[in-house]
């Protein structure tokens, strides 16, 4: 990362002055602490544990190894925030999602560098960020449209006006695609919150940096605290709390592991959570963004309204 670079640049006349070189070399590196994102704040994990990631620029970064208690705290925050978030107008949610896209766009340079440091090629990093921004705008657009498109007036053979509309499921716990640096996380958060759900997302274990930097974007985007909470850590440790917590209404698990799928589905039956298990996919493909990803975390409410009496 830029902050740690201590290389000397030639001065204006082409030769580095000795004093300038020494001064630059003596400056201590200022490294960013990557912390988790709960309830609009950046705490360290309550467990105090961390794991270390080696970056392609030879730096090492310590990342929070979140515990089940961090998850518990996140669920409390998400539950607290859910009703208010769902109570905002769809148009306002749309504006906020668009704002997230704007903020991500302005941080393009930082994200590019981070993605490259985590092993992406410069071209791939640029493409990934562009798609992430576009994807946020895509779902921002759907916020105040999916209900019109997918609600229905149902013909019934009695004197009732019968209609169905969509409501958010509630609190969603998601384990993001472990092979994606940024796009997998963005592509799951955006459709979940578009309809008024709140989310606790576990970032990729091996690529957690851009997830935390994305949390900084969220934190400066008028998104109310608790709507999105991002943890870093191990899937093996957090899969069980994610799927057993009684106050979670739906889970999204991205895994290629058949046993994880079985565990998720079995545990989710405890309080009949909605479950979506998906294998790791190429998130850059346009086919992996569609409004049905919003529908996965909504409930259909059907109303029978008497008429003609």
């Amino acid at each position: 990362m830029a902050a740690t670079k201590t290389t000397t640049k030639p001065s204006a006349n082409g030769t580095a002055s000795k004093a300038e070189t020494t001064a630059k070399n003596e400056r201590l590196a200022v490294l960013k602490t990557y912390k988790i994102y709960i309830n609009g704040q950046f705490p360290r994990t309550e467990s105090g544990r961390y794991y270390t990631i080696k970056l392609s620029n030879k730096e090492q970064v310590n990342v929070c190894l979140s515990s089940r208690k961090d998850f518990r705290n996140s669920v409390s925050a998400a539950r607290e925030a859910q009703e208010k978030w769902a109570g905002k107008t769809a148009y306002n949610r749309s504006q906020i999602l668009y704002r997230i896209a704007e903020m991500l766009e302005t941080r393009r340079a930082q994200f590019t560098e981070e993605l490259v440091n985590q092993g992406a090629s410069a071209a791939a990093a640029k493409e990934e960020i562009s798609i992430a921004v576009d994807r946020l705008i895509y779902y921002a657009g759907w916020c105040d449209k999916f209900n019109q498109v997918f609600s229905s007036v149902n013909p019934v053979s009695s004197s009732h006006f019968n209609f169905s509309s969509l409501e958010p499921t509630g609190v969603v716990a998601a384990i993001a695609d472990q092979n994606s640096r940024l796009l997998g996380l963005v592509s799951i958060i955006a459709p979940v919150i578009a309809s008024g759900n709140t989310i606790i997302a576990l970032a990729s274990t091996q690529f957690p940096l851009s997830a935390i930097t994305f949390a900084e974007v969220l934190n400066t985007s008028d998104l109310p605290a608790g709507v999105v909470n991002i943890l870093t850590g191990e899937v093996s440790e957090l899969l069980v709390p994610f799927t057993t917590h009684m106050d979670v209404n739906a889970v999204y698990i991205n895994t290629n592991n058949q046993q994880d799928k079985v565990t998720a589905e079995t545990n989710a039956a405890l309080n009949v959570k909605r479950v979506k298990v998906e294998a790791s996919i190429d998130w850059t493909l346009p086919k992996n963004e569609d409004p049905y990803r919003i529908l996965d975390y909504t409930e259909v409410k059907t109303t029978w309204h008497p008429i003609g009496i």
Partner: peptide, 9 residues
């Protein structure tokens, strides 16, 4: 039970 609970119940 070992599971975190919800006020709903």
């Amino acid at each position: 039970t070992g599971n975190y609970q919800s006020l709903n119940y």
